[in-house]
Design a binder for these strands. Structure first.
Lengths: 187, 187
DNA sequence: AAAATGATGTCATGGACTGTCGTCGCCGGC
DNA sequence: GCCGGCGACGACAGTCCATGACATCATTTT
């Protein structure tokens, strides 16, 4: 075999390790590649940019979310369909609390990474909006339900990451959705 | 006088013009500086990066928003205080519809710019959250009201930009807030 | 066994950003 | 009025991210 297997995985591991050890800005792509036993050029064949290493999972999340929203009970209201989607997403994170925490602290330390995180969340909003539209929800309700749901998810996720007791993400999302409902009601 | 006045303004004008003419990625900082009669190095003395030119106004928006939320009637609910803040912001955009449209189309054409736009919106969320906290609103209500309000603003702003008839932004925000309330109510 | 394929390396280049230092008008103290 | 500091800018060199073009070579196909 001419090359070691799983080049992508090695790059990913090397990158996350270095981002954690030295910080995102301080680590160069050349260093990542070297630790993975590859070249800088090869890094960019697997990841479009230095940030994308930390976000490659988001594609799978999009399809999962889209399908779960689409598959919600036909009788479910828009926001409940979104909630069903978020529940499916929450399941994926069970047992990944520690990973989410590490990744979160890397991202929290760098503005560029926060930008990327936000655009990934925005792409989730798009996907959910589209799924709701297919369920027959009209604009702007579809977009707003998606925005509200993803915002709740975001807040709930941060709260979940910031504590150690509760393993499951879903209860956090549920609580947050209820709180959101209360707050938008206006009294 | 050794140099022409208003270096910053000239850079801003040059940049926006070039971004509009040739696209954001295609225009180099060297070109911008040259058109402004300055050097690349000077560009980076005024703007932290190539994108920031299009977002320098957001700082003023933050303070305006914070003060308007803080200054809302003491009896106002959290979401109404946010709405009061958004109303103040909306006023700023009266008469800037055309500018908003141009700027919006530049941003829509480039993912990096969308990332920056999103982080600026996120910073508005932070500011509003903080203002609500000072009003005595507890977490997570403060954060959620801020997220919901800014999401509504975002949606309303896009709708406002995408049409030509209605000059005022505020009615769009009002409608969107009502729609959000309906959608989060869940039926 | 020759040819196509695919993963990687090598080389070269452009462009964003940064550090450093030099220049030179301007301004305040004296 | 002279002088030294200050502020705004230019000049220059350097780093790193990112990408294109092409070479290499094991594996697979035919």
């Amino acid at each position: 075999m001419r090359w070691q297997p799983n080049a992508r995985g090695r790059l990913e591991q090397a990158a996350i390790a270095l981002y954690g050890e030295s910080g995102f800005e301080q680590t160069t792509v050349a260093e990542i590649a070297k630790r993975a036993g590859l070249t800088e050029r090869t890094f960019f064949r697997y990841f479009t940019d230095k940030r994308e290493v930390l976000f490659s999972g988001s594609e799978a999340l999009k399809t999962l979310l889209a399908e779960a929203v689409a598959g919600a009970a036909a009788s479910a209201s828009p926001i409940d369909a979104v909630a069903a989607g978020l529940k499916a997403v929450a399941l994926v994170f069970s047992g990944r609390h520690e990973y989410a925490r590490q990744r979160g602290s890397i991202i929290a330390a760098n503005a560029e990474l926060q930008e990327r995180e936000l655009i990934k969340l925005a792409s989730l909003v798009s996907v959910v909006t589209e799924a709701l539209r297919r369920r027959g929800v009209m604009e702007p309700a579809a977009r707003l339900a998606a925005e509200a749901g993803i915002a709740a998810f975001h807040v709930a996720f941060e709260r979940w990451v910031d504590q150690t007791d509760q393993k499951d993400l879903w209860p956090f999302i549920q609580e947050t959705l209820v709180a959101l409902k209360t707050v938008t009601a206006g009294h």
